[in-house]
Amino acid sequence: MPSSDSPEHSQSTRLAEIDKIPCRLVHPIPLGFVHFCAVQAIHEILIERDVDPKFIFQKAGISTQFWENFDVVPLTVLGRLTALAADHTRCSHFGLLVGQRATLASLGVIGALMRNSETVGDALRALVRHHGILNRGAVVEMLSGDHIVAVSYVPYEPDAEGAALHCERALAALTKVLWSLCGSDWTPEAVLLPRLQPPDTTPYTGFFRAPVQFEQETATLLLPSWLLTRSIEGAEPRVRTVVERRIRQIEDEYPPDLIDEIRRRMRTAGIRMWTNAKQVARQMEINRRTLSRRLKAEGTSFRLVASQLRLGIAKQLLADTNMSLALISAALEFSEPAAFTHAFRRWTGTTPSAWRKERRPDHATPGPSAAWGGSGVADR
């Protein structure tokens, strides 16, 4: 029988821990949903700040005891809940606080896979590949350069509320996870956030210990490239093999939803072709006509899916940043701002400027709700 300090005992203990992961963190989730862990963190923070969670949760449309009965929460509801909590606690960095509560354990099987990856780079690539198990409303992507690695959290659910809050929460959570994997003796090169600059930025620079740039197109951590080669102490190859097999079983049993897969691919860095159905079909390894036929069977079309996605991104950038219409137009790959304005009017019946003004009457000097989360849902 292996001794308590032997490698065999360590592996057996780690494997037993994998078996104890709650079912809610093992099974995949429906389109537009995320796991419950962030909601638990919100509940805890509200109590710590002497704000009645029951009132906030009811206003957001969910029960304070929902995680005892449900495994997931819609991304839209999580955004609404976070924005309400930010307004009622009058905390401009509420999303940051939620993200700081993240642990490897809160990532379930993905956290177990990252913990037992050989290097930090392997762990990040595992997160990129399998993030859909945890979140069916955003994609994580990684781009490597000579000296800098960009890791981005990109929401793609078009109706998601509080996207800016989701983004800062996700980057804080990723930073905490990376520190737990390899120590905190390093810092990001920079942090980019797609939200209005809050009145006080010190909570952000204090946590990340790095320059934080607001009003950005995407939420991105810029990491030193050498970090990818850092070994993860105590990683167990045998445990990694078991976890990988578990994840493959999950993904084989629950393949991605067609529309979800299209949105994910259009939001990745390699696919910036918002109207190129042929290229997306090629990436999905199916025929263009087959893609159209399958979408038609679901009552939609590639053009409609692409338009809904672009509209969601446009609304988020209009509401959560002061980016000019020219910059937003370029981010959405319109030929010119006039083309963006025409498309936005077709989608909504109004212009981008009018929509922004209605959403944020004084967007040049945002009020508390705009500056504290960007969704403005607390004012509804």
Rank of each mutant, 00 (worst) to 15 (best):
160 A>H: 00
96 L>W: 05
91 C>R: 11
24 R>W: 08
10 S>K: 14
326 A>R: 13
380 R>H: 10
18 I>M: 07
288 R>K: 13
306 A>V: 04
335 S>F: 01
183 G>E: 12
347 W>G: 03
196 L>G: 05
145 G>V: 09
228 L>E: 13
2 P>D: 09
264 R>C: 10
76 T>S: 13
226 W>L: 04
285 E>V: 02
109 V>I: 13
21 I>D: 03
198 P>R: 08
85 A>H: 03
199 P>M: 11
35 H>D: 12
215 E>K: 00
254 Y>V: 11
369 S>K: 00
122 D>I: 03
376 G>P: 02
247 I>H: 02
163 A>N: 04
185 D>L: 07
269 A>T: 08
51 V>Q: 05
69 N>P: 01
10 S>Y: 04
365 T>E: 09
296 K>Q: 10
281 A>W: 06
304 L>C: 00
13 T>K: 15
66 F>L: 06
379 D>F: 02
369 S>C: 10
298 E>Y: 01
254 Y>C: 12
193 L>I: 15
77 V>T: 15
293 R>C: 01
292 S>L: 05
216 Q>M: 13
170 A>H: 03
290 T>Y: 00
362 D>R: 06
194 P>F: 11
154 V>F: 00
6 S>V: 09
232 I>R: 03
311 L>W: 02
149 V>F: 03
265 R>K: 08
122 D>K: 09
1 M>R: 09
348 T>L: 10
101 R>N: 03
335 S>M: 02
342 H>S: 12
193 L>C: 07
47 I>C: 06
337 P>G: 10
147 H>E: 14
170 A>L: 10
54 K>N: 08
79 G>P: 02
141 E>W: 04
111 G>T: 04
140 V>R: 12
71 D>L: 04
241 T>D: 13
138 A>V: 06
119 T>M: 09
90 R>N: 11
335 S>G: 06
186 W>H: 08
128 V>T: 07
58 Q>A: 11
374 G>C: 10
329 S>C: 09
344 F>G: 02
172 A>P: 00
318 L>Q: 09
332 L>F: 12
243 V>T: 05
332 L>I: 08
104 L>V: 06
46 L>E: 05
234 G>Y: 13
282 R>Y: 11
341 T>D: 13
66 F>H: 06
281 A>N: 06
281 A>G: 07
299 G>W: 09
333 E>R: 13
134 L>C: 06
198 P>C: 09
291 L>K: 04
56 I>K: 04
114 M>A: 15
8 E>I: 08
213 Q>R: 12
230 R>C: 03
200 D>W: 08
287 N>G: 15
240 R>H: 13
331 A>Q: 08
86 A>L: 04
170 A>W: 07
54 K>P: 01
363 H>M: 03
262 I>W: 09
165 L>R: 00
21 I>K: 01
331 A>P: 00
135 N>V: 08
121 G>I: 06
239 V>W: 00
278 K>Y: 07
354 A>K: 07
273 M>C: 05
147 H>L: 08
312 G>R: 05
354 A>W: 01
358 E>N: 05
277 A>C: 04
45 I>F: 07
187 T>P: 00
345 R>C: 03
245 R>T: 12
160 A>R: 01
377 V>P: 01
80 R>Y: 01
76 T>V: 11
343 A>C: 05
215 E>Y: 11
146 D>G: 06
127 L>H: 03
84 L>W: 07
338 A>R: 14
169 R>T: 12
184 S>W: 03
120 V>A: 08
29 I>F: 01
98 V>H: 10
92 S>F: 11
372 W>D: 08
